[in-house]
Design a protein around this nucleic acid. Structure first.
Lengths: 162, 162
DNA sequence: AAGATACATTACTTTTTTGTCAAGATTCCA
DNA sequence: TGGAATCTTGACAAAAAAGTAATGTATCTT
């Protein structure tokens, strides 16, 4: 279970855009330099993000990329989903598909782990927006640890008073 | 963010072993057949699991593999960690290492996402043991959804009466 | 002790994922 | 209008992961 290169760099590019003052944009060359990746690679990533409607591009001089929506309206769950869509398709037509080919019949116990894990991750990521990632390490850290903390607490003690 | 092939098949092999009556074992050939993978591949997976101390092997006739501990004492968090250890090393010397090479200085907001995600996943997996995966889809599903449910509920409503 | 069975280990092949290149299309500016 | 800047796109190359093969070593049975 790991974050792919494409996910990581793609997310970083979006954070760069989220940092910009209203109305400004970044060219591929600028983006590449800021993230320490090649221009070609940045081009590919931004192309994916553009196709998915997360960023808007403009060609020619004065061209570049900017976010398609305010950073506070872009959740990480959406970002990650877009960035590994291609990959996920293959492993087995997304996690549901795993099962149709799976040698385990029905009641095997593994299916819910795979599917459930995916849900848990999406769930956690849906609590964070791009805006929260902008120059704000402490805050994000707190958000995530709040999730983890509660999780641990309540799960380990099945019945709690609500 | 996806479950690698090695993680999935490795886990499946362990579940096969967990299903066995006390004292019995499975050979590579049996394991391979039951999971629909090649014997060579099963050999590699079991070798990793053996090195990590999760299973015990015995050679020669009457040989095979069995769990090194009762299935109720093997948590999925440990299993997954063992199965992608090699892979994780490379991406950037485990998630902490990412940062030493990272072009982002200190307060970038991305680090806690990567690290935090990893923690959340480990956390969820540490709540499940191999024993719970044995022929018991409904139960695992409930466990995981309980985690997710609580998570969503509490995080979305920042202040709750406890 | 010999031979058969089964794991151990390393090197190699194939497939998948990443990353690069190059030719084309659009936009801006003079 | 022409040229420079910049994104677009598909083909290609390199690196990583997954899977296979082959040779070696331990254990059991007779």
């Amino acid at each position: 279970m790991k974050v792919s290169s494409q996910e990581e760099y793609g997310l970083r590019c979006l954070v760069q855009l989220a940092r910009l003052p209203e109305g400004e944009s970044l060219t591929l060359a600028q983006m590449a330099e800021r993230e320490g990746i090649s221009t070609a690679n940045a081009g590919k990533l931004l192309w994916i993000l553009n196709k998915a409607g997360l960023v808007q591009s403009h060609r020619g001089m004065k061209g570049g990329y900017q976010l398609a929506r305010p950073s506070s309206e872009i959740r990480l769950s959406e970002v990650i989903k877009v960035l590994d869509e291609d990959t996920v398709q293959e492993h087995c037509k997304s996690y549901t598909g795993v099962m149709e080919v799976c040698v385990h019949t029905g009641d095997c116990g593994i299916r819910p782990v795979i599917v459930g894990l995916h849900e848990i991750v999406q769930n956690a990521l849906s609590e964070i927006t791009l805006a929260e990632l902008v120059g704000n390490e402490a805050k994000v850290d707190a958000t995530l640890h709040q999730i983890e903390g509660l999780q641990t607490r309540f799960v380990r003690t099945p019945k709690v008073n609500l």
